[in-house]
Write a protein that binds this DNA or RNA. Sequence first.
DNA 1: TTCCTTGCAAACTTTTTGCAGCCTT
DNA 2: AAGGCTGCAAAAAGTTTGCAAGGAA
Lengths: 149, 149
Amino acid sequence: MDKKEIAFKILSENGLKYTEPRKILIEFLSEDENKHLTPEEIYDKLNPDYPNLGIATVYRNLQNFENLGIVQRLNLGDGVSRFELAELVEDVHQHHHLVCINCDKLIEVKGDLLGELEEKIENLYDFKIIDHDLKFYGYCGECEEKKDR
Amino acid sequence: MDKKEIAFKILSENGLKYTEPRKILIEFLSEDENKHLTPEEIYDKLNPDYPNLGIATVYRNLQNFENLGIVQRLNLGDGVSRFELAELVEDVHQHHHLVCINCDKLIEVKGDLLGELEEKIENLYDFKIIDHDLKFYGYCGECEEKKDR
DNA sequence: TTCCTTGCAAACTTTTTGCAGCCTT
DNA sequence: AAGGCTGCAAAAAGTTTGCAAGGAA
C-alpha cells in the first residue's frame, strides 16, 4: 500500500467522500514530493489539465488533509503556506529543512535529530513535546561558492 | 547600554532617522518582552496613547527593525507575524520556543541547543548555516495535567 | 434521497504601497 | 533645504466563506 492509497484510506475512515478534486490533489502531491508548493502553485499547475477545479477547493482540501495528517504544512516565513505529503508509513521519520537565503532552494534533512534534546527540554520545562519544527537558514553550496568570487 | 539604546544606535548607524514612531515602538517592545505581539496588537496597545500612529508605520518599522536585526519575527503558523526585541548583546544566545497546542502559551528555552548539530549538517549537506528556527509543539504543564482528568 | 462537496464570487485578514505633507538631519 | 518618514487610504496578497448546483454514498 503506497502513500496515495493510505491517504485515500484515511479519507474514507474519516467519512470524507472520494471525490474527483481529492483524487487529483492527492495524486498530484504524491507525484510531486519535495516540491513544497503553495496552494496557488498547486492550483496553477493543475489548472491546464483540470480547468474547473477551483482554488477554494484546493485550499479547503489541503486544510482537510492537514487535519487528518495526510499533508504537512510548511511555514518558511515568506507569508505563504507550503504543503507536502506527510510520512504515512509506520516508522515516521521526521525531517527538517535547509532554506537557502540567497536562492530560496529547499533541501531536506532526513532523520529526527532532536530526540535526546526533546527529552532534556521536557524535563527542564515541564512540557510534553508532541512535535517540532526545525529550519536552518543559510547558503547552499552553490550560493556560498558564488559569494566568494 | 541597554537594549533600547543599542537599538537606537543601530538605527543611526544605518542612517535611519530618530523619529517619534520609532522611539515609541522600541520603547514599547523593550518594556514588553516575551509578549510576542502581532503588529495589530502592538498598534492597538499603542493607539490609546498615540492615536495618530498609523498601522502602516508599525508594519514598516517592524520590517526595518527586522532587517537590522533589532527585532526577531516569529512565525507560529497561525497566519500572523509576531515580534520580539532581539538579543542585542555581545554573546548572542539563541533561544527557542515551546508552543502549547492547547492554550497557545509560549515558553522560551534559553541557550543555543543546536551548535554541534549544525556542524554535522553543514558538512553533510554542503550548506553554510547562518541561522535557525526551532519550535516545539506540545502541552504545557497545566494543560497536560488537565488532560489526565 | 441525503447531505457532503464543489465552483464561483464575494468577503475577510494581513500586509504593502502611493502620495502629499511633515520632520529629522 | 533635502530627503527620509509619516498617516491615510487604497491596493495587494493570501485565505476563507456563502450559496446554489452537483455528485457520492
